[in-house]
Design a binder for these strands. Sequence first.
DNA 1: CAATTTAACTTCGTTAAAGAAAGTTATTTC
DNA 2: GAAATAACTTTCTTTAACGAAGTTAAATTG
Lengths: 170, 170
Amino acid sequence: MSGARKSFAAVDCAVAQAIEQMGDPWILLILRCQFQGIKRFDDFQGHLQISTSVLTDRLRRLVEAGMLRKEQDARDKRGTVYLLTEKGLDFYPVMIALHQWSERWEAREDGPRLELLDKKSGEPVRDVRVLSQDYRELGARDVLALVDDRSGAMMLDIKERLRRRKGNAV
Amino acid sequence: MSGARKSFAAVDCAVAQAIEQMGDPWILLILRCQFQGIKRFDDFQGHLQISTSVLTDRLRRLVEAGMLRKEQDARDKRGTVYLLTEKGLDFYPVMIALHQWSERWEAREDGPRLELLDKKSGEPVRDVRVLSQDYRELGARDVLALVDDRSGAMMLDIKERLRRRKGNAV
DNA sequence: CAATTTAACTTCGTTAAAGAAAGTTATTTC
DNA sequence: GAAATAACTTTCTTTAACGAAGTTAAATTG
């Protein structure tokens, strides 16, 4: 009876909140363009083949979310530039993690389309990974997720689930 | 005249391809649940309040994309478990980068809802960042994106854009 | 300096996908 | 053997994405 995309803002989880705001294909593609240096309305359209109404909507959302700020182009007063804020720039690791994951699993036969080099050294950047304090690479199975249930006590997520499922296959 | 979400599969870019496949809110939320250990149809519904038709569709897409595999539950032959493949598990850095970004910028006043600890040491994991070979943290401005134009020569992305825009504000 | 072009939208009609609810099939528990 | 449950499928309604056309203000061209 709805047709609208549901909101899951009520879910008390940082990832869910991030997805609520940034987990939209066009939002992510616009951010990708931003990191490529694209800043203007018609350049987004040229690169993304996005309809004007949707582009307007997504740029507005990104500004509202504090990811981008709007500025008048100094050279052409008709023009607007959308610039990444500090919050927007801080999304870079997510974007690069996504990029590298894609290169690892969906690579073209003829090699990578894009190489990311550290400007200072000229060497490729490291694969974005979850690391321990002493820089060991950690997978999902090496990390313990502690959920704070807001009642004062810290609760072990895994133990709680095990309890609830009463010995089902894990 | 369309109403359908457009495909940008033709865009020759790894990030765009990743977004085409994984840049959907429900896809991302299902993956988040997977990393929490949720594996069964009705558990996804319970946690996500997702409609059955959409959940069916997204699980099918995730299996098709090679992120999840379907298995019959050994204990209950009615049951199906959806398990992360190697490709799916490798998506972990993206998920944690998203989580940490959200905790940094959308944190509740009363502190983090989830703490991620290295099982081996008990210490929190590092913030997921783009790192140089010698572990310097790199921002978007510290990284050079080299585009391979498939014509043999490597082409400097930034220089090319500068040339095209003929001295517009950067 | 008038006419045209351009940037960044807004509005409008159409359609495909998201959603709610009810129905289906094969197990399993009582 | 009856009721419950897991994992869907089907049907119907609504809404948001799409394409195209129109708008406004500034800049460029003749």
